[in-house]
């Protein structure tokens, strides 16, 4: 059986290199037959693509998509640098 660390690394690499995602800095954890994606992406469709690419890279695992879409709130207070 392939070590879970290698499976996680393969998924992480797929998310970075696949033309549909190109997303770096996503946390990928494998526990038994479960795979967890954590981090932030900029859109809902992108979030779904991430799950698809992860699933293809690890078809034998159940993917939990815990990615969040970045919320763009109103600009806040100014910071004064003097």
């Amino acid at each position: 059986m392939e070590a879970p660390q290698y499976v996680a690394a393969r998924v992480q690499r797929a998310l970075a290199e696949d033309d549909r995602t190109h997303e770096l800095g996503i946390r990928v954890d494998v526990r038994g037959d479960q795979l967890f994606l954590r981090g932030q992406v900029t859109g809902e469709e992108h979030r779904r693509q991430m799950e698809r690419v992860a699933q293809e890279a690890a078809p034998e695992l159940h993917v939990h998509n815990e990615l969040q879409v970045v919320q763009v709130r109103e600009p806040g207070e100014d910071e004064h640098l003097d």
């Binding site: 900029t42 004064h80 640098l81």
Partner: peptide, 14 residues
């Protein structure tokens, strides 16, 4: 953007 969590930061040089 994910660090700011808001549309943009504003920095005043003064």
């Amino acid at each position: 953007l994910p660090v700011l969590g808001r549309a943009y930061g504003i920095y005043c040089l003064s």
